[in-house]
Design a binder for these strands. Structure first.
Length: 220
DNA sequence: GCGACAG
DNA sequence: ATCTTGTCGC
């Protein structure tokens, strides 16, 4: 499949539909397990990892892996159509509870307010936040000493430097701005540049794509 | 038309 | 994201 086999207009409409269901509200309760999601590639094959982390201890509780051929190309603004299918497959393999999704990508700081974090949050009916290394849409404004990500006059996220480089943390679904910083700070161990859920999802999906994980091998 | 552009 | 050569610092 290449660029011309895709109906981006219909894809956009689907995103607008999902964006209307996004709820911005304080997390109803402190999460117990936070799930990090990411995808790595080896050629046309994608390897997704869903890693459940205990919010209090930051220990890995469960790992879900899924792999498959990825035909949808990477097009800025349409990342969910490329990566969400495998992420969902990996997520479904987790037996335990899932209180919050932390996705590698953006939430509502998106051209149609439907980045992959919001997309997954709405589909799963779970709170979600996006963690990205670069900005996709919107702008960063300084306010009360904080760098906020604003799009269409709405505060969609915050820029944090928890480690070596800036991270763009955005609202996915059923969380608010306060939750973003709370979750990001409390799940990031000193010495690391990413929140634990994303760090492990990123690492495990990459190790898997490199064929370094056979089954239940210990990871640390 | 031009530049920008998550992973 | 992935590939890939070179450089800097602990």
């Amino acid at each position: 499949m290449d660029y011309h086999d895709i109906d981006l207009f219909k894809a956009s409409q689907a995103q607008v539909m999902i964006a209307r269901k996004v709820k911005i509200q304080r997390l109803s309760r402190e999460p117990r397990s936070v799930v990090g999601l990411d995808v790595s590639y080896r050629g046309e094959t994608g390897f997704a990892a869903a890693v459940s982390i205990n919010y209090k201890t930051l220990e890995i509780e469960e790992i879900g892996i899924a792999e498959g051929k990825v035909v949808f190309p990477y097009i800025p603004g349409y990342l969910a159509f490329r990566e969400a299918p495998l992420m969902l497959k990996a997520l479904m393999r987790l037996k335990g509870e899932k209180d919050l999704l932390v996705v590698n990508g953006h939430g509502i700081a998106h051209p149609r307010r439907c980045g992959i974090a919001s997309y997954l949050g709405v589909i799963m009916g779970l709170p979600s936040i996006g963690v990205a290394k670069r900005l996709l849409a919107g702008s960063v404004v300084e306010r009360n000493g904080k760098r906020l990500i604003v799009i269409d006059g709405i505060v969609a996220g915050v820029v944090l430097r928890l480690g070596k480089s800036d991270l763009y943390i955005t609202i996915g679904h059923m969380v608010d701005i306060e939750d973003l910083e709370e979750i990001a700070r409390r799940t990031t161990i000193s010495g690391r540049s990413l929140p634990e859920p994303i760090y492990w999802a990123d690492r495990i999906s990459r190790e898997k794509s490199l064929g370094r994980i056979s089954s239940q091998r210990t990871l640390i």
